[in-house]
Amino acid sequence: MNIYVSNLSFDVHDEDLKSFFAPFGEVTSAKVITDRATGRSKGFGFVEMADEAASKKAITELDGTTVDNRTISVSVAKPKEERSSRGNNRGGFNSGKSYNENRY
Protein backbone atom coordinates (compact mmCIF):
# COMPACT_ATOMS: atom_id res chain seq x y z
CA MET A 1 0.00 0.00 0.00
CA ASN A 2 1.23 3.48 -0.83
CA ILE A 3 1.03 5.98 2.05
CA TYR A 4 1.16 9.79 1.88
CA VAL A 5 2.88 11.63 4.75
CA SER A 6 2.61 15.42 5.00
CA ASN A 7 3.78 18.25 7.25
CA LEU A 8 7.22 16.70 7.63
CA SER A 9 10.08 18.68 9.08
CA PHE A 10 12.53 19.84 6.42
CA ASP A 11 15.19 17.87 8.35
CA VAL A 12 13.49 14.50 7.73
CA HIS A 13 15.21 12.32 5.11
CA ASP A 14 14.29 9.07 3.35
CA GLU A 15 15.90 6.86 6.01
CA ASP A 16 14.15 8.76 8.81
CA LEU A 17 10.79 8.29 7.10
CA LYS A 18 11.50 4.58 6.69
CA SER A 19 12.38 4.24 10.38
CA PHE A 20 9.04 5.83 11.44
CA PHE A 21 7.14 3.06 9.66
CA ALA A 22 9.49 0.09 10.22
CA PRO A 23 7.96 -0.93 13.61
CA PHE A 24 4.65 -1.62 11.81
CA GLY A 25 6.01 -3.95 9.12
CA GLU A 26 8.18 -4.24 6.04
CA VAL A 27 8.78 -0.90 4.32
CA THR A 28 9.51 -1.49 0.65
CA SER A 29 10.29 2.19 -0.08
CA ALA A 30 10.31 5.57 1.63
CA LYS A 31 10.86 8.83 -0.25
CA VAL A 32 10.82 12.43 0.95
CA ILE A 33 9.97 14.65 -2.02
CA THR A 34 12.53 17.37 -2.70
CA ASP A 35 12.62 20.51 -4.80
CA ARG A 36 14.53 19.86 -8.04
CA ALA A 37 16.33 23.20 -8.02
CA THR A 38 17.39 23.39 -4.37
CA GLY A 39 17.32 19.76 -3.23
CA ARG A 40 15.42 20.91 -0.13
CA SER A 41 12.54 18.85 1.22
CA LYS A 42 9.04 19.95 0.20
CA GLY A 43 7.68 18.71 3.55
CA PHE A 44 5.93 15.57 2.33
CA GLY A 45 6.75 12.08 1.21
CA PHE A 46 5.53 8.60 0.36
CA VAL A 47 6.00 5.27 2.07
CA GLU A 48 5.22 1.93 0.50
CA MET A 49 4.58 -1.09 2.70
CA ALA A 50 4.24 -4.70 1.59
CA ASP A 51 1.40 -5.70 3.92
CA GLU A 52 -1.96 -3.90 3.71
CA ALA A 53 -2.94 -4.66 7.33
CA ALA A 54 0.40 -3.27 8.57
CA SER A 55 -0.09 -0.20 6.36
CA LYS A 56 -3.52 0.51 7.80
CA LYS A 57 -2.22 0.09 11.35
CA ALA A 58 0.68 2.48 10.63
CA ILE A 59 -1.71 5.07 9.17
CA THR A 60 -4.02 4.84 12.18
CA GLU A 61 -1.25 5.05 14.76
CA LEU A 62 1.03 7.62 13.10
CA ASP A 63 -1.58 10.10 11.84
CA GLY A 64 -1.56 13.13 14.13
CA THR A 65 1.66 12.21 15.92
CA THR A 66 4.48 14.68 16.45
CA VAL A 67 7.81 14.22 14.67
CA ASP A 68 10.53 16.87 15.05
CA ASN A 69 8.02 19.26 16.68
CA ARG A 70 5.56 18.95 13.76
CA THR A 71 2.22 17.15 13.73
CA ILE A 72 2.27 14.89 10.69
CA SER A 73 -0.69 13.73 8.61
CA VAL A 74 -0.64 10.16 7.35
CA SER A 75 -3.16 8.78 4.85
CA VAL A 76 -3.57 6.41 1.93
CA ALA A 77 -1.93 7.97 -1.12
CA LYS A 78 -4.29 8.82 -3.94
CA PRO A 79 -3.25 8.07 -7.52
CA LYS A 80 -1.58 10.98 -9.29
CA GLU A 81 -4.08 12.84 -11.45
CA GLU A 82 -3.36 13.02 -15.14
CA ARG A 83 -2.06 16.46 -16.08
CA SER A 84 -2.88 17.92 -19.44
CA SER A 85 -0.11 19.26 -21.65
CA ARG A 86 0.57 22.97 -21.87
CA GLY A 87 -0.75 23.19 -25.41
CA ASN A 88 -4.24 22.18 -24.39
CA ASN A 89 -6.06 25.08 -26.09
CA ARG A 90 -7.92 26.08 -22.93
CA GLY A 91 -7.04 29.74 -23.33
CA GLY A 92 -4.63 31.69 -21.16
CA PHE A 93 -1.25 33.11 -22.02
CA ASN A 94 -0.01 30.10 -23.95
CA SER A 95 -3.20 29.29 -25.80
CA GLY A 96 -1.77 29.89 -29.25
CA LYS A 97 -4.50 32.40 -30.06
CA SER A 98 -3.43 35.68 -31.52
CA TYR A 99 -4.07 38.79 -29.43
CA ASN A 100 -5.37 40.60 -32.49
CA GLU A 101 -7.61 37.77 -33.64
CA ASN A 102 -10.75 39.10 -31.96
CA ARG A 103 -9.99 42.81 -32.25
CA TYR A 104 -11.41 43.51 -35.69
Rank of each mutant, 00 (worst) to 15 (best):
N7S: 05
A53M: 02
V32Y: 13
S95W: 06
F24D: 08
K97D: 08
V76G: 02
S19F: 13
F44Y: 08
R103F: 13
G43D: 10
T34F: 06
D11K: 12
G92V: 12
Y104M: 12
D68S: 13
E101Y: 10
G39W: 08
V5N: 03
S75G: 07
P23F: 10
S29E: 09
G64C: 11
I3R: 00
V27W: 07
D16F: 02
N102T: 14
V5I: 10
D11A: 15
A54M: 04
N2F: 12
K56G: 12
S98V: 10
Y4A: 11
F20C: 02
K80S: 09
I3V: 03
S98E: 15
R103M: 09
T38H: 09
G64S: 07
T28H: 06
F20R: 00
E61R: 07
A58M: 11
F46N: 01
S98G: 08
T38F: 12
G87Q: 11
S29I: 05
A53C: 04
S41A: 15
F93S: 11
E26R: 09
D14P: 04
E81H: 13
R40T: 14
V76H: 02
T60I: 08
S55D: 15
N2M: 05
T66G: 02
V67G: 03
P79T: 01
F21R: 00
S84I: 15
F46A: 01
K57T: 07
F10A: 09
E26M: 13
D68H: 11
M1K: 12
L17K: 00
G91F: 01
I72K: 05
T28S: 15
N94T: 11
H13T: 12
D68A: 15
